[in-house]
Design a protein around this nucleic acid. Structure first.
Lengths: 211, 211
DNA sequence: GTCTATACGATGATAGAC
DNA sequence: GTCTATCATCGTATAGAC
């Protein structure tokens, strides 16, 4: 092939525009111009704009979920060997830390974090189905682990709290830039490690709350 | 005018489609067909698709914010008269309860809740600026009240926790319908009053969490 | 197999007739 | 105030060059 990286260039340009402007407002023409390829190359390589979005998601999500699942299984194995139950905070950390670490400079996945945040906000969007299919095994395992660490709560209560925690997480995934009302004396440029802890303080307390 | 309720019919149809499908995927043609008006009527009455969205938002948001601000001021006045500091849970309730109550059947604002949830997920969207302008006074007052009820936390910590709580709330505002992974034995059709309490359990504990 | 040029129907928007 | 005509741009499809 004369342009061996045509697909990759399209994927990168698409990821960038989808994350910055959203899926619908982004035109294939802006993507192909940025990637320096012909307009029809998208449909040739990916079939449609929708399938291009799917490819953009899968390229990053599969490796990320392998890391998250690996850390979760490692935690569960470690605590089981010690005859303990895993701590809620540590269970959440296996999910949150690999996610927010993608925002580190040079991770080349900064755009992806924002993109996923946006996808999670479009209930009936095409991407949601794709996304959820890839998340289901990890979500089920995470729910199991949380039930282990919080045996006093019903599955109903647990479900809603996981739902809330994910809402919080997806919210900060979207919000790199200042778009909400920020008081003057508050600095929102927090190092990723600190943000993980600030989030885990909040989410762990919410998960463990007495009714 | 020969069609006195042309504007209202357009507003209702737009609210419905914007909430269900999102702003960009909705065509003016589908709105005008549903509202039984001519295509150009939108641009005549509202100027553009974007200004139509603005009108849709303002029609519901202004009354809602008056209710929320009224309840918050009433709470602050009551506790001050008693020489007490307001409880974090009650401060959050003045914001959350009026919001989720719009999902009650017959409130005629069910679509609006989902619409706001979607707007909050589009950081650079046109609607975000409109929305935030209308929210700023209430947000500042809410932040003040939370600082009163949680004097031990820095404004930095407080800011992030408010941010997380809003993320959780906007998440459930979007998610009427089942789109996430729901275990078989969990019932997501919870009465609004119960949902308010389930949410306040989580969010209050998160706000009050020790670091 | 890859890629390009081109065309088609639908969209948001606007100008001008009535 | 309302409607028709019109425009640039959108996603998509296809024929054909290399």
């Amino acid at each position: 092939m004369s342009q061996p990286d045509t697909k990759q260039r399209i994927l990168c340009a698409a990821e960038h525009f989808f994350a910055r402007d959203g899926y619908h407002p982004t035109s294939l023409r802006s993507i192909t111009t940025e990637a320096k390829v012909n307009l029809a190359a998208v449909n040739y390589h990916f079939g449609s704009k929708e399938s291009l979005l799917e490819a953009v998601i899968e390229r990053r999500l599969n490796p990320l979920n392998e890391i998250r699942l690996g850390q979760l299984e490692a935690l569960l194995e470690k605590t089981e060997r010690a005859g303990e139950t895993p701590m809620c905070r540590e269970v959440l950390r296996t999910f949150v830390e690999p996610t927010l670490c993608l925002r580190l400079h040079g991770s080349d996945s900064e755009d992806f974090v924002a993109l996923i945040g946006r996808i999670l906000a479009e209930p009936r969007g095409v991407a949601m189905t794709i996304f959820m299919n890839h998340m289901e095994p990890l979500m089920n395992r995470l729910f199991q682990a949380l039930a282990l660490s919080l045996p006093e709560w019903s599955r109903q209560t647990l479900f809603w709290r996981v739902h809330f925690a994910f809402g919080s997480l997806s919210h900060i995934m979207r919000c790199h830039e200042r778009h909400s009302i920020v008081p003057d004396d508050v600095n929102i440029d927090v190092p990723v490690d600190d943000l993980v802890d600030i989030f885990l303080d909040f989410a762990t307390a919410g998960m463990e709350a007495t009714q």
